[in-house]
Computed example of a mutant assay.
Amino acid sequence: MNCKSAVVLFLFGFLLVSCEDENVMPKPKAMLRLEYPMAKEAELNVGELTFNYNEQAKPVIKNKNAIIIDYPGMKGAIFITYKKIDDNLKNLITDAEKLSLEHMKKADKIEPRTFINEDNKVYGTYFQIIGDAASQSQFYLTDSINHFVTGSVYFYRKPNYDSILPAADYLQSDMRTIMETLRWSSEE
């Protein structure tokens, strides 16, 4: 037997002996635990709208008709758009519903919920979108006479519903706060 064969045989024997049958246990599956701070509300008044938002977010006012409630730490945002009704309420509602239903291509399910706040004269629909869609929730609100508002949750990354679910739930809760506290700044 030559020297190379002896070394190879020695290494093979060493590996064979060192690989004793140990009770190898698989690691348990772990769930990522994401915790977000409790929401502290602040009031925002822009153009015809007044509503509460989460102080953890940064409001970016593009103009009096376009507001972004930005969550830089979550890489997400709530986009809010205001439009004045000009005998076009039916078209505005149709467009808002169509926008939500466009997500059906990627979503597993869309759950619409009617929203009514008689005290503030705010009526509309909230859409929860379940699945790998670009937006996880949307809404439209109106007083049926003068004001129309749409809102959408978006993340600045490719949607993966399972991964963003905790952040999506957090933003959806903040979106519902916006809806529940929305007031029209002027009544005509």
Rank of each mutant, 00 (worst) to 15 (best):
K40G: 04
F51T: 06
G13W: 08
V7I: 15
F79P: 08
Y126P: 01
V24D: 05
G76R: 05
N160F: 12
F155K: 02
E43A: 13
K90E: 15
N117A: 06
K75A: 05
T177A: 08
K106D: 12
M74C: 02
T125P: 01
V60F: 15
Y156H: 13
R183V: 06
N117I: 07
P72Q: 04
F139V: 08
S152Q: 15
K58H: 01
E41D: 03
V153Q: 08
S186Y: 01
L92Y: 11
T177E: 12
T125L: 02
H147S: 10
E187I: 06
K105H: 01
M175C: 11
R176S: 08
L34E: 09
I178L: 15
I61G: 08
K58F: 01
R33V: 15
V17I: 15
T142D: 09
A39H: 09
L182P: 03
V7P: 00
D86W: 00
C19L: 11
E41V: 03
G151L: 05
R157D: 14
E43M: 14
P26V: 07
D132I: 11
A42F: 07
A133D: 04
E180W: 02
K62Y: 11
D132G: 10
S185I: 00
K121F: 01
E20T: 12
V122L: 04
P37R: 14
L9S: 13
I80P: 02
S173I: 02
R183Q: 15
V60L: 15
Y123P: 08
A107K: 03
M38A: 14
A134G: 00
A167F: 02
E35I: 10
N160P: 00
I178T: 10
A77T: 10
N52G: 03
E97T: 11
T94W: 04
K84N: 06
D162Q: 11
G13P: 07
L49K: 06
D174K: 05
D143N: 10
L49S: 04
D132E: 05
Y154E: 07
K29T: 12
F14L: 14
G151Y: 05
L171K: 10
Q138E: 14
S100L: 02
A167S: 13
H103G: 01
K84I: 05
I116Y: 00
D21I: 04
R157L: 11
I93A: 10
L101F: 11
K98S: 15
A42Q: 15
D70I: 06
G124P: 00
D132F: 09
F14K: 01
I145H: 05
L32T: 09
D132K: 08
K4V: 09
I61D: 06
V24H: 05
T50K: 12
T114A: 03
D143T: 01
I69A: 01
K27V: 10
N160Y: 13
Y71Q: 03
A134K: 12
R113F: 04
N88L: 04
E188R: 01
L141H: 03
I61S: 09
T177M: 14
D21G: 02
P159N: 14
D169R: 10
G131I: 01
D162M: 09
Y53R: 02
N45Q: 13
E35N: 15
V7Q: 07
N65P: 00
T142E: 05
S163I: 13
K84V: 08
A66C: 02
E102S: 09
E180R: 09
P112L: 05
I78P: 04
M179V: 08
R33E: 13
K29N: 13
L16H: 03
Y36D: 07
